[in-house]
Design a protein around this nucleic acid. Structure first.
Lengths: 386, 386
DNA sequence: CTGTTAGCGCTTTCAC
DNA sequence: GTGAAAGCGCTAACAG
């Protein structure tokens, strides 16, 4: 770990400044000099010292991507899309960014901790993906930290979670504690500024709308006993999807509202086993169950497994639907009815936003549309008494 | 991006050196002073400048994890395990490492490029996961780069790929061009040194052995028309798995060897669609096909889908098996016969090795055992004429 | 077009 | 136990 800019300079018979200019390429240098320098670099196998250069230039090429679970394709797809926008992987010189993904495991401390690291590294941008945790204290801490990062010049993009709660008024000015969430459909709350005013841009997923359409689909097939296996209860995504579900019931079959709580099982995680356990629990609670909605596709797979293990056929006996439309859903048997989120597109857009290569939506908030994918796992409920 | 160590020092009424000592915690500081400093840090919301600190200390807390496809759970599981070993996520001070995953997309340029970035950042360690690319030129370039990194103090761990080819003798000393690969089962080639001599440690997966056992399983069920859908042909994993398959045939049913090439379809990627297309192609080529082996579980899912679309039942008409035992395999219907690789354990071990928290295996190379998981997707072939 | 001169913000001897 | 000072390797004005 020895060879420095100075060594290269000596070898090439030029000054360190010249070498620096050749390497960064953003400054006129004579052709001959350039070749000489390049040769010296080659011969010495010189590699720029990142920290030194970052310190001097006060910039960094790091872009952090925070995900809740890197082993879940939902995040993998988004992360991969973000990374795909970071630019052609040149051999070194250019302003290419390095997107690194950080796995928080859904832990709030871990999330904060990664943000600290990223802040230390003076990251160029940070993309936070997926569900946020609904915790008053964490939410405030997170918002503060993100605003501070943004103020320091780091671009912040929220992808797949709702926008930050409006800034806390430190000058306590009243007991106004209503409406903790900013309006969703109205894209003008930033009063026309290019972002929400603090440089943080949000790409929210229309979880509520998608979920609502999904439940409507089931309702119109004739289902009246619809179980729901939620995700972890403190997640924004969980809440939004459940809300969409309830909205559909309220609008189309209000008589079912009374049983809603009874028909809802709160899963502990977005994984297969909470689907499995949840389905079993629903079967126990709801005698005439004809359909099960799952928090996402992975959970839905667990639901299917449990149902099958109980000798139930899908969709003849029970319909099942997921959410997200991950690649495996189209291949499952039967093919899984779900709600498609254009994860790749959203991730790519988040990447562009992070690099400042795309102008932020008005108000700093855009909602990504979701689409119902009606497939083989949903059908009309079985006739009375099978 | 303003507040610096000096600001904190002023505020706390001490010198910058003292603040630094308090923050790094590895030096005796009076209790009172420490509290005073901490308070100043708190009040000023001070965050260490990573580049500056890395420059001065000539160390970094970055650990890079290179993966071929971040959207593939195979890599997600390994990466997540590596990350889980990086230590309790403290609030900042300690020597905690930041594991960042870099998605190469299987591209060799991208791989090299990420290594350059990591080298620039003076990464503490680099973990390369999964299949390497079998390309003479790239192999050499990669080996050189990794050795250089290792020489510079960066720990290198190969997880899920074969060890590096032995060092190129620059002093051309003979036409010795045999055995481009080091012995696998013999763990003593490093002559008892704690690693292969260059500080690079390898955790190879026993793909060949697992594949061999899988084919033996099919053979002993009575299958004689076994199709094989491979992964991308330039990958070490692809080659090893195919070799294991051929080995089993050679040992147990040499009469099938003649048709081996005919029964092998080379898939373009480790994805669902090459499984789908591969299965169709096999059906075309092999009239009495009774079993299909896939490069991995994801490919196997594609194979299943194709088979089903052709009206074939699994396993009654055709048996199918995958490789890796990803979580979804146990949930597929029918449950998928496959070969289990302890991905999480391997990743965790790679993480420990990367941090120097575990002593490297003798010779620097360890082979991770794989295990046959015989499940519902394989059964004896149908009787003659169905 | 190229060299000189200052730092960037932190860590770390070396004194006190 | 704490301070002063000397860089770490690079970039970015300024001069020439």
């Amino acid at each position: 770990m020895a060879v420095t800019l100075a060594d290269v300079a000596t070898r090439a018979g030029v000054s360190a400044a010249t070498v620096s200019r050749v390497l960064s390429g953003n400054y006129p240098v004579a052709g001959a000099t350039r070749t000489r320098v390049m040769r010296a670099v080659e011969e010495l196998q010189y590699v720029v010292n990142g920290p030194a250069s970052a310190l001097a230039a006060a910039t960094s090429d790091l872009v952090g991507v925070l995900v809740n679970d890197i082993a879940d394709p939902f995040f993998g797809i988004i992360a991969s899309a973000v990374q795909s926008e970071m630019g052609a992987v040149g051999q070194g010189g250019g302003g290419q960014k390095l997107a690194v993904v950080c796995n928080t495991g859904g832990s709030t401390e871990s999330e904060l901790s990664y943000l600290t690291h990223l802040q230390r590294q003076r990251a160029a941008a940070v993309v936070l993906t997926g569900s946020g945790v609904e915790d008053e204290k964490h939410g405030a801490a997170l918002a503060t930290r993100l605003r501070r990062l943004a103020a320091g010049g780091t671009r912040i993009v929220l992808c797949g979670r709702p926008p930050l709660a409006p800034e806390q008024q430190d000058t306590h000015q009243g007991p106004e504690r209503e409406q903790p969430r900013p309006p969703q459909e109205n894209g003008r709350d930033g009063e026309g500024r290019a972002d929400s005013g603090d440089g943080i841009v949000t790409l929210a997923f229309d979880n509520r709308g998608g979920s609502r359409r999904l439940t409507e689909h089931l309702l119109s097939l004739g289902h009246r006993s619809i179980g729901y296996v939620t995700g972890p209860s403190d997640r924004t995504t969980t809440r939004d999807r459940l809300e969409g579900h309830r909205l559909a019931i309220r609008a189309r079959a209000p008589e079912l509202l009374a049983d809603a709580e009874q028909f809802t099982v709160h899963g502990g995680a977005y994984d297969r086993s909470s689907g499995y356990d949840g389905a079993l629990e629903l079967l126990r609670r709801v005698p005439g169950l004809t359909a099960v909605l799952a928090a996402n596709d992975t959970v839905a797979l667990g639901v299917c497994a449990a149902l099958r293990d109980q000798g139930l056929r899908i969709p003849e006996d029970v319909s099942v639907a997921g959410f997200d439309d991950l690649p495996f859903s189209a291949d499952a048997s039967p093919t899984l009815t779900t709600v498609r989120i254009p994860l790749h597109d959203a991730g790519a857009r988040a990447g562009r936003l992070a690099l400042g290569r795309e102008t932020p939506p008005p108000g700093g908030v855009a909602t990504v549309r979701t689409e119902l994918m009606a497939r083989g796992s949903t059908a009309p409920p079985p006739g009375p008494r099978g």
